[in-house]
Design a protein around this nucleic acid. Structure first.
Lengths: 122, 122
DNA sequence: CTAAAACCTGACGCTGACGTCAGAGGCAAG
DNA sequence: CTTGCCTCTGACGTCAGCGTCAGGTTTTAG
């Protein structure tokens, strides 16, 4: 599988794939002429990377976590790292939920037929 | 209340407050010499702004939404805007939850006493 | 065999939310 | 009245995750 094909399949740009490699998130075999070749598992891996990015993790953090996910190496540090990120995400979910509820309240107010607004804000 | 005091109380930098004003998110009265002065409600407003930022909204979006929150102006457009952002956040929560569960699975694997790993990944 | 399409390696550009430094003025305390 | 902290307005710096262009090689289709 060449880079363009993988890009299509995983729904990202070719540039992004090269960037992931540069950041140590994705490895590729090279043909004699230097072209990258990927196995079938690559697409799934790219989707995982995207998932972690979309959760707000940085390249550095993902690079730290992926070996834990892959090799099942289980040092106390790696477990701590995973747990820490998990908790960070949990916190973020809580914040987002708060924000969503806040927006819901505003929406309810602006939709409701002129009821007791100020009270509802509290 | 002057800008430094507000910054302390709201837990943000002075620079950030000036930036918020520049983006039209926060207004201040000016003393004769040009110094900013804020009312007591300002701290709460700054925290709201921070909440929205942390939910991934941009300055532009927040600037669009705040008038709806404030003035309770309820045009069809504003309601649509609010609902759209609400849905975006909902989607983001779903993604984060997915990511967290994924991490939980990995953690369970690396913690578990050598059980049937591969099966559990599916 | 050739032209198009895909790939390669730099390397600079971009956006958003500030950090930071420069140079100058304002304000309460001793 | 001056010392020291706070504030002001520019304006440039930063960092991440790519986009994009340049200039050159490689693979594929006809």
């Amino acid at each position: 599988m060449r880079i363009g094909e993988l890009a299509d399949e995983a729904g990202v740009s070719v540039r992004a794939l090269r960037y992931y490699e540069e950041q140590g998130l994705l490895t590729a075999e090279r043909s004699g002429s230097g072209q990258r070749h990927y196995g079938d598992a690559a697409a799934e891996r790219v989707r995982l990377i995207q998932l972690l990015y979309s959760a707000g993790l940085t390249s550095r953090t993902i690079a730290d976590l992926l070996p834990c996910v892959d090799a099942k190496v289980s040092t106390p540090e790696s477990r701590a790292r995973l747990a820490a990120e998990r908790d960070r995400i949990d916190t973020q979910i809580a914040e987002l939920t708060k924000t969503r509820d806040r927006l819901d309240a505003v929406i309810a107010l602006s939709t409701a037929p002129e009821s007791n607004c100020v009270v509802a804000l509290a």
